[in-house]
Design a protein around this nucleic acid. Structure first.
Lengths: 211, 211
DNA sequence: TATTTATGGTACGATACGTATCGTATTCTT
DNA sequence: AAGAATACGATACGTATCGTACCATAAATA
C-alpha cells in the first residue's frame, strides 16, 4: 500500500519504527480493556506506549481510526465462517460465534463504542464501511452462496436482506440493550429467517410487486 | 411526577418558567436542524433561547437528556401503528412509516446521534430504554397481538424476535449505511419474516430444542 | 415581610482532542 | 563523507465544550 516498488527502491528517510507502531496499538488495546473507548485518552496511549503524541497523530488522524485498527484484526480473527452443510447450521453457528465474541466482553464494548463513534465522524464512517462492514459481510455472504449452490435456496434470494435480518436483529439487541442475546434468541432468529426463505422456492422475495 | 398533590398545595417559591422551558426545547430543535447533535452546544442553546445556561442544567443534567426530550415527542407522533387487517400490511405500513421518518431527515440524523450518545452515557441509556425503546416497542407489539387474535399467527410466536427482525434490520441499515432503505428492502424484510412465521403454525419458534 | 425557589448573566474549572515546534535520530542518495 | 529526507520523543499550546459556581434579582407562598 505505502510503497509498491518495495524491492526496487527503499524509501528515502528514516523508516517507520515498527516497535513504536506495535507499542501504540498494544497500549490502545490495554487501555480499552481497562477503561473503554470514551475514557481512552491519546495522552495516556502516548505515555504508556513510550512514544510521543506527535508520532501517534502522524499515522492515525483521529482517536477513532487508532482504536479501529487496534480493534479490527482482533475481531475479524474471531469470526470464522462455519461450514456445516446446511444454511441453518451455518447461520446459527455464525450467530453463536458473534454472540460469544461480543456478549459481556471488551470486544463487544469496543464494537459498540466504535459504532457510536462512526455516527459522529464521517471520515471514520467511510473507513468503517470499507474496511469493516464490507469485509465482514463478504465473508458472511459465503454461507448464503453455498446454500444456493446446494440448491437449498433460490438464486433470487437477496443475500443482503438475509444478512440484515440475522445480524441486524443481533446488533439491535446489542445496541439497544432491551433484551439479552440468548441462545434461544439466536435459534428463533435463524429458524424464522430460514423458514421464510425456504417457504416457496420461487419465493417470498419474488413477491416484491405484490402490495 | 414533580408534584402529585398539585391541587392541594401549590409549590412554595417561584414557579418554573414555561416560557423558558419551551424556548430551550425550541432552540435545541432549531440547532439540531441546522448543525446536528455533535455541533449543538449548550452555550448556543442558552443564547438562542434567551436563557441562562444554569437554567438549562437545572432541568436537564446533560446535553443528551435535553436533546432526547426535544426529539422524542416529535418522533413518536410520526409513528402511528397501522391497522390494515393483515400482519403483512401492518408491518409493511409501519416499516414504511419509519423509513419515511428517518431517511434523509433531521429526525433520522438526530435518532442516529442519540443512539450513539446512548452508548457513551449509561444514565442516558437508561432513560432511552425506559422512555423510548419500551414505548415504541409496546406500540409496535400491538400488530403482532392482533394477528394472534385473528388466528393468523400462533400464540407461541415470540413477538420480541419479530420486532427485532423487522426493526433490527432497518436500524442496521440506518446505522451502518452499507445499503439504502428502499421500498424493495422493506418488502423483502416483511415478506420473509411473515413467511417464516406462518410456515408452520406450531412453528419455527417451537423448534427451540432442535439443535 | 420573610422565605422559598427559579432566572439571567457570567466567570471559571476540568478535560481532552489535535497542532506546532524543536532538536535529534536514522536511513538513503550523491 | 556530506547532505537530504523522513521519523522520532518531548513538550507546550490553542481550541473547544461540557458542566459548575456564584451572584443579584424576580416571582411566588406563608
Amino acid at each position: 500500500m505505502t510503497e509498491l516498488a518495495s524491492s526496487a527502491s527503499a524509501p528515502r528517510g528514516r523508516p517507520r519504527s515498527e516497535r513504536s507502531h506495535r507499542a501504540i496499538l498494544d497500549a490502545a488495546n490495554e487501555i480499552l480493556e481497562e477503561h473503554g473507548f470514551v475514557d481512552l485518552t491519546m495522552d495516556e496511549v502516548a505515555q504508556r506506549g513510550g512514544v510521543s503524541k506527535a508520532t501517534i497523530y502522524r499515522w492515525w488522524p483521529t482517536k477513532g481510526t487508532l482504536v479501529f485498527e487496534a480493534f479490527t484484526a482482533n475481531f475479524l480473527a474471531r469470526q470464522p465462517t462455519p461450514n456445516t452443510g446446511s444454511l441453518r447450521g451455518d447461520l446459527l453457528g455464525a450467530l453463536r460465534n458473534w454472540i460469544k465474541t461480543v456478549k459481556g466482553t471488551v470486544t463487544g464494548r469496543t464494537l459498540v463504542a466504535l459504532i457510536a463513534e462512526v455516527q459522529r465522524d464521517p471520515d471514520l464512517a467511510e473507513i468503517w464501511r470499507e474496511h469493516f462492514v464490507t469485509s465482514v459481510r463478504t465473508q458472511h455472504r459465503v454461507m448464503i452462496d453455498r446454500a444456493v449452490e446446494r440448491g437449498a435456496l433460490s438464486p433470487d434470494v437477496d443475500s443482503d436482506v438475509v444478512l440484515d435480518l440475522v445480524y441486524g436483529s443481533a446488533y439491535h439487541r446489542l445496541l439497544q440493550s432491551h433484551l439479552p442475546l440468548t441462545e434461544r434468541f439466536a435459534q428463533n432468529v435463524v429458524d424464522t429467517v430460514v423458514a421464510g426463505l425456504q417457504m416457496d422456492r420461487a419465493g417470498p422475495n419474488g413477491n416484491v410487486k405484490m402490495t
